[in-house]
Design a protein around this nucleic acid. Structure first.
Length: 501
RNA sequence: CGCGGGGUGGAGCAGUCCGGUAGCUCGUCAGGCUCAUAACCUGAAGGCCGCAAGUUCAAAUCUUGCCCCCGCAACCA
């Protein structure tokens, strides 16, 4: 059965240097997209950049550039990284593009016309140094200087009026905010009265933003602008057929830090527009550097490009997907990376391929031997192989990529055990057909695993499937063709040697 | 009493809903194999499942109390 699958990453703030967190979310979206495409689903994968706001304006001023020039210079850092990471996004939206700006303005007008935007004098604590309003909590933190009370006329979005409806929606849709702990957090948050949202900034204070169509002295608040990318890109108010095809999104993948903006601001905006809500907002954890938070000031930011250069893109993709447990924080250390790479990819998967192909070259003329008559031992492996695809599919549809990878590795481990028990290198001396049967079974398990791993490691699995003459093969057990010549090849995942201390 | 999540062998997790030999990966130690990328396989050590009380023939799992860790408490992005 074919489904629609529309997945998004957040649009990343253009001023940030891309780090491992950006890479993680985007790879996750890519893996899900590739998987769903392989399942025959209709996929739209969107990522992009958030280019408005005060920090962009300030950074551009500092460099003596216009904000737009500044953004144009920075955007390639993300585009290049996505290219190197093998990201298969279908669209890339920048909030400074005309197609986006127009939709944001149309929406502002629409929401204004339906009475959900009103003008009001706002009074709050303002940090002159930071040039922005701050919360009571932030004021107490002592991080902000030159705090004073300031009154300012602004435009507000009637977010509060949708509070009950939002609570009901979350309660009626258990999978709407995931993981469940985050869902609870949001329900807890919504137990308190929900205020309205200030969605304007006077140009005198912040000029770099999208102008509010009914009051040209103001630009709109960045989140009101940024969130709209999820519908502006698939054609809202521009291309009805396209929009109807994709919206509502299947999943918004986000970091846990922007959960409120997505599950409260965005949803109420959609309510006001009369649009359906996305099926799922999925908040993943953060990558910690060892035990501490990743931060520029600590100088412990891991650059994804460095990792790719050292270990290859597939290893990086595999590591990030396997190591982050659904919804929880994960810890990155170089030792950890090497450990997982060596044990899963080099020792288990790569080495198994190597021993199997070596034996076929040595004893079977370099040609994949016939499957023969399965004994109980082969049946056991085949049975595991036959159920694996469905298991993995169910887990991936449920965002449990780490568990799906573990299931695949379980098959590889089982085959290593099977090889040991059957010892085809010994069997070859007395019963060549039996040895061939074992090697066919092991190779077939490798083929199947490669097919299932191809969403995570597109490059390396393409090499494997090419070697096995099984390009384009599927999830049926036994698709491997006996008689196919098996060329020799260098180790797929060379072990990373570490000096022992 | 603001709300929520969690505390399981050295590390990271599963098991808790539907009580009944505590499981997986990594690490450590010993052995085996020697087809292979010093890889692979087998076995062992190591846990009173945060603490205490209760229910029960039986509790990691149910009830109650306590301790500790973490997240959220919006309008910077």
């Amino acid at each position: 059965m074919s489904h629609k699958f529309y997945v998004t990453t957040p649009i990343y703030y253009v001023n940030d240097a891309p780090h491992i967190g950006h890479a993680y979310t985007t790879i996750l979206a890519d893996v899900l997209s590739r998987f769903h495409r392989a399942l025959g689903d209709d996929v739209f994968f969107l990522t992009g950049l958030d280019e408005h706001g005060q920090k962009v304006q300030q950074a551009a001023e500092k460099r003596g550039l216009s904000p737009k020039q500044h953004c144009d210079e920075l955007a390639p850092r993300f585009l290049d990284l996505w290219k190197k990471l093998g990201i298969s996004n279908d669209d890339f939206v920048r909030t400074t593009e005309a197609r986006h700006i127009r939709v944001v303005q149309d929406i502002l007008q629409k929401v204004y016309d339906n009475g959900d935007i009103y003008q009001h004098e706002y009074e709050g604590l303002y940090s002159v140094a930071e040039e922005r309003f701050i919360t009571e909590k932030e004021a107490e933190s002592g991080q902000f200087r030159e705090i004073k009370r300031l009154k300012e006329k602004n435009w507000f979005f009637r977010m509060g009026k949708y509070q009950e409806r939002l609570i009901r929606h979350i309660e009626d849709h258990p999978g709407f905010i995931r993981p469940e702990s985050r869902r609870n957090e949001m329900l807890g948050f919504l137990r308190q009265p929900l205020g309205d949202l200030c969605i304007s900034r006077p140009k005198s204070r912040l000029a770099w933003g999208i102008e509010i169509p009914f009051d040209r002295d103001y630009v709109t608040y960045v989140w009101f602008d940024a969130l709209i990318n999820y519908i502006s890109a698939p054609g809202y108010l521009a291309d009805d057929a396209k929009f109807r095809r994709w919206w509502p999104a299947t999943a918004h993948l986000i970091g846990k830090d922007i959960l409120t903006t997505h599950s409260v601001y965005w949803t109420t905006m959609l309510f006001s527009l009369g649009l359906p809500l996305p099926e799922c907002i999925f908040a993943h954890g953060w990558w910690l550097m060892g035990d501490s938070k990743m931060s520029k000031s600590l100088g412990n930011v891991v650059k994804p490009l460095d990792l790719i250069e050292q270990h290859g893109v597939d290893a990086v993709r595999y590591y990030l997907m396997a190591e982050m447990i659904l919804g929880a924080d994960a810890s990155f250390t170089p030792e950890n990376f090497i450990k997982r790479y060596n044990s899963d990819l080099a020792n288990d998967f790569g080495n198994l391929l190597n021993r199997v192909s070596g034996l076929i070259a040595k004893n079977h003329g370099g040609v994949i031997p016939p499957a023969g008559e399965a004994t109980a031992a082969e049946e056991e492996i085949a049975a595991a192989g036959r159920t694996l695809g469905a298991k993995v599919e169910a887990l991936v549809r449920d965002f449990k990529v780490d568990q799906a990878l573990n299931e695949i590795m379980n098959l590889i481990r089982a085959v290593n055990k099977y090889m040991e028990a059957q010892a085809p290198w010994k069997l070859a001396k007395t019963d060549l057909a039996a040895a061939g049967r074992v090697l066919y079974t092991a190779t077939e398990a490798l083929r199947l695993s490669a097919v299932l791993l191809s969403a995570v490691m597109p490059e390396k699995t393409a090499v494997v499937l090419d070697i096995l003459g099984a390009k384009g093969s599927g999830l049926q057990w036994g698709e491997l063709k006996a008689g196919t010549a098996l060329p020799t090849f260098p180790p797929l995942f060379p072990r990373i040697e570490v000096e022992k201390q």
